[in-house]
């Protein structure tokens, strides 16, 4: 009996998952599948770029600096044992470009902007602002969801680039200014190992995909929130947990595809 219950529970959660994916897909489709409205859409997009992008900048830049510095310090301690401390440059740059830049930025973004998006949308739903838009014959998907989605998709890759650039300078700061690695070797070896196509383009592809996933989850959780305070707080937590897990899983897949061979 309990076995059948367990099977039924499994079945139910599978059905819920499929239904949820379907709803999320419909939401995204409804939000972005239409002609862009430049005159009305642009101010909304700019406002969201401010809320989502500009307001995440400080945390991203500070984290990037510290992560680059820590990476350089730890890397130096290991590399110096092999007498190859000049390889610190590529170590820091490649770790940041290939993994840490896109991934850590996406995780911080999920915590900073994703949770805020969910809470904002949840609040709009529970105070009936979304219903009220619908009754005014204005599609909330286009008015509310679409500008937030695009702002997230534009902001996160830019933030990841900033994070990576600042991180490399943080590594330079520790490696060159503090540990006394030759600045020229630092840059020359770094430049020789970083490839435009393999590293920078892949970094941008990764962060773009992470941006889509994190923003999408945050908006879906907010848009389909149970409209009460408990529902909003649960949805906010779910946004952070689910988007972080999704980013890490997706990162593994992408890394396997990009660097697996």
């Amino acid at each position: 009996m309990s076995l059948i219950d367990a099977v039924a529970r499994l079945g139910r959660s599978a059905i819920d998952l499929v239904v949820g994916l379907g709803k999320a897909g419909l939401m995204l489709w409804g939000a972005i599948a239409h002609r862009p409205r430049l005159r009305k859409g642009t101010p909304l997009l700019i406002k969201q770029l401010y809320v989502i992008g500009v307001q995440s900048m400080v945390i991203i830049i500070v984290s990037g600096l510290f992560i680059g510095m820590v990476l350089a310090l730890q890397g130096y301690n290991i590399l110096v044992g092999f007498g190859t401390e000049e390889s610190l440059g590529p170590m820091v740059a490649l770790s940041l470009l290939r993994e840490l830049g896109p991934v850590v930025t996406a995780l911080l973004f999920a915590g900073r902007a994703g949770s805020a998006l969910t809470a904002e949308l949840g609040l709009m739903k529970s105070t009936e602002q979304l219903s009220s838009l619908e009754m005014m014959a204005i599609d909330p998907l286009r008015q509310i969801v679409a500008p937030r989605f695009w702002a997230g998709v534009i902001s996160l890759p830019l933030l990841a680039l900033m994070f990576t650039a600042v991180g490399i300078y943080g590594g330079h700061l520790v490696g060159v200014e503090w540990k006394g690695i030759d600045s020229g070797s630092f840059w020359s070896i770094l430049q020789a190992s970083v490839e435009w196509r393999q590293d920078i383009v892949n970094c941008m592809i990764k962060s773009l995909l992470f941006a889509i996933v994190v923003t999408w989850i945050a908006l879906y959780r907010g848009y389909h929130v149970t409209p009460n305070p408990e529902g909003i707080s649960r949805a906010t937590t779910q946004t952070v947990v689910q988007s972080s897990l999704a980013v890490l899983a997706l990162d593994f897949l992408l890394t396997a595809m990009m660097f697996g061979q």
Binding site: L123, T127, E128, Q129, S131, S132, E134, M135, M136, A137
Partner: peptide, 19 residues
């Protein structure tokens, strides 16, 4: 439906003003 809704309007319990 949107054309119909332009002919009606709803006052929500919470007011639902855009905050």
């Amino acid at each position: 439906l949107f054309a119909l809704r332009k002919r009606m309007s709803m006052l929500f319990q919470s007011g639902a003003l855009f905050t």
